[in-house]
Every structure is written in structure tokens, then in C-alpha cells.
Write a protein that binds this DNA or RNA. Structure first.
Lengths: 196, 196
DNA sequence: CCTACCGATCGGTAGG
DNA sequence: CCTACCGATCGGTAGG
């Protein structure tokens, strides 16, 4: 057996994945060709397959990296001390941070998941639905504790997740609004809308 | 010159456009083939071209139909009597109605516009940016009139538009929430978040 | 990591 | 509205 060179190989695969995320975001998964990806990486197309299995594997890697990050954070937030309001606020802030710091990957996970192949497509959707249900549970706890208004928790979570996701349209340094103002204004808008 | 049969031809073209919107929404623009579209229409692929110019023309029709509907409504809302709060509320409700009643078209306009060809791509983005600026103006008027909190109007509009757009994820009759509850809860969440 | 190449599929045209 | 077909491009493999 050949000696494994995890550092070198992993970093090359990571580079390819990162470039793929940028291209998938810019042009969409289907409109991105492996030849185009190869060009941005600096090799010929067939050479990519020494590092990756297939085009769809790249999409899987990106989508589940994002999904696992969100799931992992929510688990830790649920386990932490604090009120439902605090937990929801922290989760909203985590979403905003993810959007601002992993722009391409989150965008691709949000937009291109439908091109996942089975069984990954089903697994992704199951994981996302489970995440939403747990967030809804958080809002329900807040309502039961009289901290939130008596709103429909499903609509609240939909509103919050959608609003935060809208940071996709944030043309980074275009407006002279700091990330801090952006984050605080959005958190306030969304929390004040449901806090009693 | 042959006699024009606008009714018949227009309705066939409309049918093709409607089927295209459903497919573009389900699979994405690039992943939808003209052969597939032809099959859902019930003809062979080359026959489509008796009614339409090209695949990209279908995308243009869908995107600008949606964009023009929003622009047209905002113009009428601006011209109407009433406070900034009322105008903003009506506009939010119009967005929700559009999402619920023209699901496929709005979805495609939101997700697939990047596949528009020039000069349509630029025109679409210009129109959208203009729309956002006018909405921001509405919020600024509300702030000046002391009706809204002193928030960043850009962030407010981003939050509102994104939240409303999230109705894309509304799996129609799945949850036992009426459209009325959905609309009112979301409007309240978004307005109460910025009203003084 | 490359060159050479394959079978499949694409949007669209010719011609009737 | 169809059959027949074109040139281009696709993801991926063979072989070294």
C-alpha cells in the first residue's frame, strides 16, 4: 500500500472544494463544468479525479459541511444555560455569522441542494426539517414561558430563517454598514417582533 | 401575409411558459432540457420553436413578468393616500400574495435570474435595485415621520424582503395554517419589529 | 498530472 | 407539427 499523505492530499481536495463552492455559487451547479473548475484550480479536467470522486461528491461535501455546522451549533445552544430568548438570539447570531463568514458554502447549500443525488438528497432534507423542528421547539418554549407573544411558532421560525438567509444578497462592502450594525439591527428587528 | 391568430398562438405560448416555470422551479434552468419541456407540453422538442424563440427567451418572459408586477404595484402604492406604515404594510401583503398565487414564476425569478443573458441580466438587476431603493425610501419616510424606529432602512428592507421571500419554502397545504393566519402573523412580526 | 478519447446529451435548424 | 440531424459540450475513463 502506498503511504498516505493526508496533509497534502487533503489540502488539494479542500482547495478544489473551495473553488467549486465559488463557482457553484456564481453559476449554479449544473452550469459549472468540470473543465471550468479545473481551470480555476490550475490543472486539466481529468486530473481533478485524482482528488475527488465526482462532481456530485463536491456538492455533497459542501451541503453537509454547512448542514452539520448548523446542527452542531443548535445542539450546543440547546444544552447551554439560559432562557429561550437567549438561546434563540444566539442561534440567530450564529446564522448571521455563518452567512458572513462562509458565504459561498452557505449559498450553495441553500440554493443547489436540489441537485444532490439520492440518498443524499433525502438525508439533507431530513436533516433540515429536523433542524427546523428543533427551532420551532425553542420558540414554543419561549411562548410557554410567556417570553414570546402567542404567535404561530412555525411562521415565526420561517420568518426568522428567511430573513437571516437574505444576507445572501448582502453585497459585502458595498454599503457603508458595519457587520456589527447589520447583525444587531437584524437581531433586534426579528426578536422585537415576537418578544412580549 | 398569413392571418394572425393571436388567441390560439398566445395561449399555446402561455402554456409553454407556464410549464417551463414549473420545470425551472423544480430542476433549475440549466438542468431543464427542451426535450423534457416538450414532453410535458405534449409535442416533440423542435415543435416548441414554432411558439417560442429560445430557451433563454422563456426565462426572460418569466423573470420580467414578475419584476413588472412588483414594480407596478409599488408605483400604485406610492401614489395612493395613506401613511408610510400603511403603504409598507400593503406592499408586504402584496409580496405575500404574489408568493402564494404565482409560486413557480416568483421562485424562478428569485433563483434563476442569473442565467439571463445580456442585456436582460443587467436590466433585471437594475430594475430590482431600483425597486429596493424605492422601498428603502418608504422606510425612510416612516422614520422621518416618527412612525418607525430609527433603524438602518437598508437592513430593514433586506430583512422584510428576505422574510417574505421565505414563503418559497412554504410547503403549501402541509401545515394546517391558513393563508390568512400566515399572512397576518408575518406582517405583524415584520411591522412590529420596526414600528415605534 | 497529462493526452486522447468515449458515449450521452444538449439547444437548435433544415426541410417538408 | 414531425423526422432527421448538426456541432458543441458535458462528466468521466483509459492508459501511461
Amino acid at each position: 500500500m502506498a503511504k498516505i499523505k493526508p496533509g497534502k492530499n487533503a489540502s488539494k481536495r479542500d482547495l478544489i472544494t473551495q473553488k467549486a463552492a465559488a463557482l457553484f455559487k456564481k453559476k449554479g451547479y449544473s452550469s459549472t463544468s468540470m473543465r471550468e473548475l479545473a481551470e480555476t484550480v490550475g490543472v486539466e479536467a481529468p486530473s481533478l479525479y485524482n482528488h475527488i470522486g465526482s462532481k456530485s461528491e463536491l456538492l455533497q461535501t459542501i451541503c453537509f459541511k454547512v448542514a452539520n455546522a448548523f446542527t452542531g451549533y443548535l445542539e450546543s445552544a440547546e444544552a447551554a444555560n439560559g432562557s429561550s430568548v437567549t438561546k434563540l438570539e444566539h442561534t440567530i447570531r450564529f446564522h448571521i455569522h455563518m452567512m458572513l463568514q462562509n458565504f459561498n458554502e452557505v449559498y450553495v447549500a441553500n440554493h443547489e441542494w436540489k441537485h444532490l443525488k439520492e440518498p443524499y438528497l433525502s438525508n439533507f432534507l431530513i436533516q433540515r426539517r429536523s433542524y427546523e423542528k428543533r427551532l420551532i421547539g425553542l420558540v414554543e418554549n419561549g411562548i410557554a414561558a410567556k417570553a414570546f407573544k402567542n404567535v404561530n411558532p412555525f411562521v415565526s421560525v420561517l420568518t426568522i430563517l428567511s430573513a437571516v438567509r437574505g444576507l445572501e444578497f448582502w453585497q459585502q462592502p458595498k454599503k457603508n454598514i458595519s457587520n456589527r450594525v447589520l447583525e444587531d439591527d437584524m437581531v433586534n428587528h426579528l426578536l422585537k417582533g415576537i418578544i412580549k
